[in-house]
């Protein structure tokens, strides 16, 4: 398997706090990579650095053979990296369909073609009957699917998902997990931030564990579950809480 994404020594600090320091990892084509870590570990910052929303102080992000470090977010999207946001960012005053069409327009020049593609993706995320609902009228779980659909519409090779199951009601979690697995089946490489340990252990091929902005482990789920540093990091947060 070849590397789709390589991240080398990626670092960023905000006013003296090292949100990310020297993060190195790679993502293989076709795999699901889980990213775990306690709150404030730097997971979302890592996504922002990879997708160009935050400029890095040091390090490189390489997509296939192309250096995409610190280039504009829209260019990164056009190169085939899609993402969702932890704090959802739907186009609230527009319908689900309109939201997804915006994504589809990246690759499609014709509005009608883009519309049809958007509909297929909405069908893929199981929301077809909600297509004319305004984004603000959808539930949190549905909005997560909306963001996923919107990102998928840009034809990503790599999809970064920030807490797909975070904040949604328990019953909708299995459906969302199933959706992630369906993505993998469709040949999309996925990097997912996840708080639910059971889910992440089940679906990931490999896991990147962060704590206080540093990489503490990068291994298979089995090895991760036995890694003392990871266990400490998590127990540490339980103590603090």
């Amino acid at each position: 398997m070849s590397n789709l994404l390589k991240v080398e020594n990626l670092s960023r600090s905000f006013g003296g706090i090292h949100a990310n320091s020297d993060i190195t990892f790679d993502v293989n084509e076709g795999e699901i990579l889980g990213v775990i870590g306690p709150n404030g570990a730097g997971k979302s910052t890592l996504f922002d650095l990879i997708t160009g929303f935050t400029k890095s102080d040091k390090g490189q992000v390489i997509l296939r053979d192309k250096n995409i470090t610190n280039i504009r977010p829209d260019l990164i999207c056009r190169l085939g990296v899609g993402r969702t946001f932890q704090k959802l960012k739907p186009f609230a005053d527009q319908t689900l369909l309109e939201n997804v069409i915006v994504g589809a327009l990246v690759k499609e020049k014709n509005l009608k073609v883009a519309r049809d593609k958007a509909l297929e993706i909405i069908d893929f995320v199981d929301l077809i009957e909600k297509r004319h609902h305004y984004a603000k009228e959808l539930s949190t779980g549905q909005r997560k699917r909306l963001e996923l659909a919107r990102a998928l519409a840009t034809d990503p090779k790599l999809l970064l998902m920030d807490e797909v199951t975070g904040g949604v009601d328990q019953r909708t979690i299995p459906g969302l997990v199933e959706l992630v697995l369906k993505l993998k089946k469709n040949g999309i490489t996925v990097v997912t931030i996840e708080h639910n340990m059971k889910i992440i252990m089940d679906i990931s091929d490999r896991i990147l564990a962060l704590n206080q902005g540093k990489r503490i482990a990068f291994d298979t789920p089995k090895n991760i579950s036995q890694n003392t540093q990871v266990i400490d990091a998590y127990l540490g947060t339980v103590d603090a809480a």
Binding site: D74, F91, A151, A153
Partner: peptide, 26 residues
């Protein structure tokens, strides 16, 4: 309002970060 340009502009209005994550040069 109904054109590709309109879709992109309204995306920027509603959520400019999401728009740029969808390939729009804000």
């Amino acid at each position: 309002n109904r054109s590709k340009l309109g879709y992109r502009l309204k995306a920027i209005r509603d959520q400019s970060e999401a728009a740029s994550s969808l390939g729009i040069h804000v």
